[in-house]
Nucleic acid binder design. Sequence first.
DNA 1: ATTTGGAGACTAGTATACAAGCGCTGTCAA
DNA 2: TTGACAGCGCTTGTATACTAGTCTCCAAAT
Lengths: 232, 232
Amino acid sequence: MLDMAKNSEIADGIERRTTADFVFERLHEDIVSLKILPGSKLSEVEVARRFGVSRQPVRDAFARLGNQDLLVIRPQKATEVRSFSMEQISHARFVRLAVELEVIRCACIDPDETVAPAIEINLELQRAAIESEHSDRFHDLDYDFHRLICEYGRRPLAFETIKECKQKIDRLCVLSLTRDSRATTLVEDHCELIKAIHDGSVDEALIVARRHLERLDETISLIHKTHAEYFE
Amino acid sequence: MLDMAKNSEIADGIERRTTADFVFERLHEDIVSLKILPGSKLSEVEVARRFGVSRQPVRDAFARLGNQDLLVIRPQKATEVRSFSMEQISHARFVRLAVELEVIRCACIDPDETVAPAIEINLELQRAAIESEHSDRFHDLDYDFHRLICEYGRRPLAFETIKECKQKIDRLCVLSLTRDSRATTLVEDHCELIKAIHDGSVDEALIVARRHLERLDETISLIHKTHAEYFE
DNA sequence: ATTTGGAGACTAGTATACAAGCGCTGTCAA
DNA sequence: TTGACAGCGCTTGTATACTAGTCTCCAAAT
């Protein structure tokens, strides 16, 4: 309870970390990992008591989470964890697809070849990860892969946008257990994509990318059916 | 000073409006319209005094503006209005382009024809607006046009994303005075775009859209040269 | 002349107290 | 039995006091 005060002091190596930061990160993690389920009510005072802080930093943290669409805050009403909306999920996926496609187009036209080696290494590691069946490891590598693609297309900031979309969808996909079974297919997609970009065949690359991201859709609609209670 | 308290009470027709909302909106407007210039320092107490409220709602408003990248807030340091960054502007334009292209692709493949009449009317009004040289009116219609395109492609939420990007760029473009001279060209773009979509020629539509959004680039780089002091 | 140290006036972060709206629940009357 | 209404406990919103960093400027020492 009180030990967090110490944490917030010791961890300020580069930037000053506030209590609000701490509360925010903890809550964020709990919400994204579904330790706190959609629809749950969160009281400022209750959370404040739990963390041993005053309401103020909790309030700040709530506001930030609200801005990320994770909480719905209404004056004088209990703020609650936002439940999933098929529209929003679909929109996040749409934006991600749009941005990713455009990044790939950039990569085809004017690639930053200094990034190419890193991609090759990443692909190798992906293959290794699925052989040794480290699905967490693969997940990290997949994340890196899409980041590298953005750098390859000289659009590093695009990954920030992609990341935001990804987070919204990932929160949902925590509910899915079929993740790793698809890993092999996903790696194949990645390889095909890189090959197409190397060959400079824009259209082919875009088709592969589209197919790659569409694989999520079945997972999403499956979850929609099996976990309807978390949808609004 | 105190009259705003009344304002916040009378305006809550649909949803409860808080003092923080009020402060946020006022500041937002002032920042976006460049009444408050990039680099300006904003003090919580000073703003609170100016609006005749306590620091708390101002703090909330600051946090929100910070989340929109309009303010840079650092612990124990004066928060200031974020100056423009060419990277961010360019990124916003990139995301907007990506999303808009994908929306148009949707509109070509599976358009919501119930929206078509509204678009026709909008185009007519655009022509009327530039003839009577109402540039503000044209700006509103342009806004509506891009909203309608999203509905036409059955992606209404996409406009929210486009709007966010637009806002970031528009804040910069307030500095430009050459807006209206281009109106005629822009309307022509709009018409061409709609025609291409109607004809179902996806590639043509995408080319037109690309060209349309690229027109912003010269304006942006012009401002970058003439107003370097507002860039970081 | 340059540097350094410290006072004071800033900054934002936090804690606490109070105000005010919403919703439930229990009671009382029809 | 059922409906309405009052009151209470919950929620968040706001105000204020206090803490603690940061900056600036000026004076004193080198």
